[in-house]
């Protein structure tokens, strides 16, 4: 269900923890699975659980607790915009509104062509670079003014 590359990465996570504490690797394993498949289906969560050798429910409760795991289909690019206070003081809502208007979707929605999903995020711990946006959970974009968004979206076409 996952590529050899992903399984090798999960093995690397497993090696970080004591042999009798494999469960510790579930967060990393789910992240790796999601990076390959874009979102987590119940079947994928069960597969990852069996690979880590923990009960499916233990993996499922992790996948539902942490908010960067996607359990519904998302677009090719998931854009998460921080609107928390420090970002909002530096134009976070302007950024969010500009993206909504430009993509024609609201938070939690995906464009019809399946290219972009827009999400509202909480503090990403990068307030000095406000407003900030995260692409596909892993790539941080700083100072996302409307001009910077135009540039970024062109890169992601």
């Amino acid at each position: 269900m996952l590529s050899q590359e992903s399984l090798a990465l999960i093995d690397r996570e497993l090696a970080k923890y004591p042999a009798d504490q494999r469960r510790s690797a579930i967060m990393g394993a789910l992240r790796i699975a999601q990076t390959e498949k874009r979102y987590l289906t119940n079947e994928l969560i069960e597969f990852v659980a069996s690979y880590v050798r923990i009960p499916p429910v233990a993996a499922y409760e992790v996948a539902t607790f942490y908010n960067m795991y996607d359990r519904k289909p998302v677009g090719k690019y998931k854009l998460t915009v921080c609107t928390n206070l420090p970002c909002a003081l530096s134009g976070g809502y302007t950024t969010a509104d500009y993206l909504k208007q430009k993509l024609g979707i609201g938070f939690g929605e995906t464009t019809a062509d399946g290219r972009f999903t827009l999400a509202e995020g909480e503090c990403m711990g990068a307030c000095g670079y406000a407003p900030v946006m995260l692409v596909n959970n892993h790539s941080m974009c700083n100072h996302m003014t409307p001009d910077a968004i135009d540039k970024k979206l062109a890169e992601l076409e």
């Binding site: 970080k16 923890y17 967060m27 942490y66």
Partner: peptide, 10 residues
């Protein structure tokens, strides 16, 4: 020493 990556929970 190892690094553990969180996934979104204040």
């Amino acid at each position: 020493l190892h690094a553990h990556h969180g996934y979104g929970a204040y």
